[in-house]
């Protein structure tokens, strides 16, 4: 059974002239107990989607079902069954860690003790600061408290809107470890992120750009769908190298990719030709190798094709 089912959701803001379409006919299914990633940059429509699914915003058209319940007709029931961590820190800054947690437990008619097992691993890390006001916590601790509060009523589905934005690489890895732990406890997780590398940590992903779904697949499936031969190239003078690559007839696209430039070649038959052209040009310290596409390569390709 699907835990979340979204069909043809459209959401726009503003009147005729200034109308902005935030979500343009979005459909996807999230299976029970999986981590489903909504991967996309700012302005893709991620937050609108989350607000619709958590019954905080009405779509213009389309249907959405969360845990078997309709987001419009059964919004009250949904609110009891889902946890939501918005992108912006929304706990009470002037309440302490413990008071915030107590508050959220109480409004859901439960207690910290009752569901402690679920949040234990996360809460233990902030417990030494339980008497500190939430507003005085560091970013990483705020994030852990917000996650604890979103979990305290033992939700069936957890919505995390950009939980790792602006967070350093180490904390991001730790956060994803926590998500794995929650998944193991049977919670379905819908998580959005602008970091393409986090897609690899999801069971399934939807790549979103300007309100449109570019692709829905497993992370491995997204990569298999990348149809072009890809090479990583570097040489002394990366800027002129990039210009040279972009100007080549055999090359579909070329862009910086970490230490190398990634070169998307039009088809398999042209790979040797690209190699020869580069070898014969006066590039010093030239290095080139075939590489597999990364999620980011796929996203760039899909973005440019649309």
């Amino acid at each position: 059974m699907s835990s979340i089912s979204v069909k043809n959701i459209i959401k726009s803001y503003g009147k005729k002239k200034d109308k902005v379409i935030a979500l343009n006919d979005i459909s996807f299914e999230v299976k029970e107990g999986e981590i489903f990633g909504i991967i996309g940059p700012d302005g893709a429509g991620k937050t609108s989607l989350f607000r619709i699914l958590t019954t905080l915003l009405l779509a213009d058209s389309g249907t959405a079902i969360v845990d078997g319940l309709d987001v419009i007709k059964e919004f009250e029931k949904i609110r009891k069954r889902v946890g939501y961590m918005p992108g912006r820190f929304s706990l009470y800054q002037d309440l302490t860690v413990k008071e915030n947690l107590d508050f959220f437990a109480t409004i859901f008619n439960t207690s910290i003790e009752e569901n402690y097992s679920l949040i234990k691993d996360i809460y233990l890390q902030i417990e030494p600061f339980k008497d500190r006001r939430a507003g005085k916590l560091s970013g990483g601790m705020k994030q852990k408290l917000a996650l604890s509060c979103a979990l305290i009523h033992r939700p069936v589905v957890l919505f995390l809107d950009e939980p790792t934005t602006g967070v350093d690489a180490v904390s991001r890895k730790e956060f994803w470890e926590m998500l794995k732990g929650l998944k193991a406890q049977g919670i379905t997780i819908l998580v959005s992120t602008p970091y393409m590398d986090e897609a690899m940590l999801c069971d399934n992903v939807a790549l979103l750009q300007k309100g449109k779904v570019l692709s829905i697949n497993t992370p491995a499936g997204v990569i298999t769908d990348f149809k072009y031969p890809l090479m990583a190239v570097k040489a002394k003078g990366m800027l002129p190298l990039l210009e040279q690559l972009k100007a080549m007839e055999t090359v579909k696209d070329a862009y910086p990719f970490g230490e190398y430039h990634h070169v998307v070649i039009k088809n398999e038959q042209l790979v040797q030709q690209v190699r020869d052209t580069l070898s014969n040009s006066s590039l010093s310290d030239l290095q080139m190798k075939r590489v597999e596409a990364d999620i980011e390569d796929c996203f760039i390709d899909l973005m440019k094709e649309k």
Partner: peptide, 16 residues
């Protein structure tokens, strides 16, 4: 200071 946070991968490269 974190000039490219949340920016799409194509624009991120144009920025660089």
């Amino acid at each position: 200071d974190e000039p490219t946070g949340g920016v799409d991968p194509v624009t991120r490269r144009e920025f660089w």
